[in-house]
Design a protein around this nucleic acid. Structure first.
Length: 281
DNA sequence: TTCTGCTCCTGAGGGC
DNA sequence: TGCCCTCAGGAGCAGA
């Protein structure tokens, strides 16, 4: 599932393969892929043709490609979205929703998404940060991320610590996988109350979040199946380094206790019941 | 205002 | 073999 390391890997690929090229033709095969562009698919394609991509940027799990018109292509990969750079004669992927041809006749940019939770839209504000994602907080690998402001904001909340890690308006880029991994490293149960945590464990948790994300980024991301790939269709290999997520009933790497799995927010949480003590109530 | 839980969506896998 | 059910989860939205 694309979280910060996976999205950053895709951004790096787009910066290499797409920036500086001029769009010749756009084909939207599945309207749901551009549902967040309220003006519709025709408006989306019309605004792109003839424009040159000037950059590839990211905040949290969002990507955007600024254009020379001042607009930007905004992209979220959802759960299964892929931004692929493919030769024009490569066979169409089963869930190919948007295809972008460039005037140089070279590799196409393709948006492929099995579950269609992701999508593309056009941001027309021309701002440094697209207003559509202005509510998304900086991510913890952003040099301007304010550690102490995050610690204070998390402790002000009256919620569970894992839920807070998944709140993209508080800290962005973290999804279910890396939340479980960081909590395991921090020896914190995800249901611990944020307002009862003191500053030191929250600072330590933030450090573990950064470590996990950095290691995953180095590995090219986490892949459990073919749903997450980089722009060349290759999978990352950080899943081999996971200590908690997806390891139910396997021994904890620290104490040997079987990793537990429980339902959480319509998904699953993985934790060590011994290293990560559940709060009293 | 803040927090919680539902909904969208598709394919894999298991049970019958 | 085929049908049905469950599971996976990011983000927006409605309701408490």
């Amino acid at each position: 599932m694309p979280e910060l390391p996976e999205v950053e890997t895709v951004r790096e690929g787009l910066a290499r393969w797409v920036v500086g090229r001029t769009i010749g033709e756009v084909n939207v095969a599945h309207p749901r892929a551009v549902r967040r562009h309220l003006a519709g698919a025709d408006d989306f394609t019309d605004a792109l043709v003839g424009r040159t991509v000037t950059g590839a940027r990211r905040r949290g799990k969002y990507l955007w490609l600024p254009l020379d018109s001042g607009d930007a292509i905004l992209c979220h990969l959802g759960m299964s979205g892929q931004m692929l750079v493919q030769p024009p004669d490569a066979p169409a992927e089963k869930h190919l929703h948007v295809r972008v041809d460039f005037t140089d006749g070279g590799r196409q940019l393709r948006f492929v998404d099995q579950r269609t939770f992701g999508g593309l839209s056009l941001s027309r504000d021309g701002a440094e940060l697209p207003p559509e994602i202005a509510h998304i907080a900086r991510d913890p690998v952003d040099p301007d991320f304010d550690d102490e402001a995050f610690v204070a904001a998390l402790r002000r909340k009256h919620t569970e610590v894992k839920r807070a890690l998944l709140d993209q308006t508080l800290i962005s880029g973290i999804g279910n996988i890396y939340a479980d991994e960081a909590l395991w490293r921090a020896r914190l149960h995800g249901r611990r109350a944020t307002h009862k945590l003191t500053r030191p464990p929250v600072r330590a948790l933030l450090g573990h979040v950064r470590d996990v994300l950095a290691e995953a980024l180095k590995a090219g991301g986490t892949s459990f199946d073919a749903l997450y790939v980089n722009v060349n269709g290759q999978s990352g290999y950080f899943d081999r380094s996971l200590n908690a997520y997806g390891r139910a009933d396997e021994p904890c790497g620290r104490c040997g206790t079987p990793i537990a799995r429980e339902a959480f927010m319509n998904r699953s949480s993985y934790f060590c019941p011994r290293c990560q003590r559940r709060p009293a109530s």
